[in-house]
């Protein structure tokens, strides 16, 4: 018996390996068996390996996708940077247009409420030497500009035309030491002279009688007696009022209403001989007080 088994050992083993599972399949082919201990062991062995492999694949895929995404992000970022630059440029242009619109609207308001033929001009240069303190405008004698004409903005006076060419003119600013403007205190109608102090300094208010009522913060407007500026235009605000114990005049400074270092658009008034107001009340009645519109 044993000899027979030994002789056909391989046949028996192989037949068993073949027929046992086949029998199981025939018996339970349609109903999968529940996992036994060995099945669970095999699955317990493979599960960590599957997780580890999955983690590796996930890492590689995530790295690759991240790289691809980064490439896309880089291109998108470049496109957005370009778009952002274009938009910023448009915003700057719109801001400039808005500011210009505000300036021109102010000038237009002035032109509509004042008589005469104003010439709108644009600042195209500043005297690089600094003496005199002057700016150059893009209007000249061809446009009807005359030497001595007043230059203003909607915020106040700027200066006086001192030189005219065909297409340009130079304007001495009221802050130049050679500039002397006839002014008056709006509140009291006391007359004085505003003289430039040069550089970025305030104007010097001269020839205010010591007995006149002058307070800090008083509005200083043009008097219209110098034949350059019409009366009632804003010059600035009085500060540092000093009433001396002796002498005829008190001293003060005037902060210019117009920042002459930031001018862009101005109006050139035609050269006429303005009549000085007979009295304070007359001037006030005509202009309704100084225009204190700011930018």
């Amino acid at each position: 018996m044993f000899a027979l088994l030994k002789r056909y050992r391989e046949l028996i083993v192989v037949s068993a390996l073949l027929l046992v599972p086949f029998g199981l399949f025939l018996a339970h082919g349609t109903v999968p068996r529940e996992p036994n201990f060995v099945d669970r062991t095999v699955l317990a062995i493979t599960a960590p390996l599957e997780r580890a492999l999955g983690f590796c694949v996930d890492s590689v895929v995530a790295g690759w996708k991240g790289y691809v995404d980064l490439r896309g992000v880089r291109e998108k970022n470049q496109a957005l940077v370009r778009e952002n630059a274009e938009l910023l440029d448009k915003v700057r242009a719109l801001t400039e247009a808005e500011l210009e619109n505000q300036r021109l609207r102010g000038l237009l308001d002035y032109a509509q409420t004042h008589e005469g033929r104003e010439i709108a001009a644009r600042v195209i240069g500043v005297n690089p030497a600094g003496t005199p303190l002057s700016i150059r405008l893009d209007r000249g004698s061809d446009d009807g500009v005359e030497k001595g004409a007043a230059v203003i903005t909607h915020a106040g006076i700027v200066g006086q035309v001192i030189r005219v060419t065909g297409r340009t003119c130079d304007v001495m600013l009221l802050t130049d030491p050679n500039s002397h403007t006839a002014v008056m205190v709006q509140r009291t109608r006391s007359r004085a002279t505003a003289t430039g102090a040069g550089g970025g300094q305030n104007l010097i208010l001269e020839y205010v009688r010591r007995t006149d009522d002058l307070k800090e913060g008083d509005t200083i407007v043009t008097a219209g007696t110098d034949g350059v500026f019409p009366p009632g235009l804003l010059v600035g605000k009085a500060i540092d009022v000093v009433k001396k114990s002796a002498g005829m005049f008190q001293s003060a400074e005037v902060v210019p209403a117009v920042d002459t270092t930031r001018l862009e658009d101005v109006l050139i008034l035609p050269l006429v001989h303005w009549e000085a107001p007979a009295e304070t009340a007359a001037v006030t009645a005509r202009d309704g007080g100084a225009r204190e519109a700011g930018p």
Partner: peptide, 12 residues
């Protein structure tokens, strides 16, 4: 076992 439906078929 790995197929999820052990029936003995794949062994055979």
């Amino acid at each position: 076992v790995m197929s999820g439906r052990p029936t003995g078929l794949y062994v055979f």
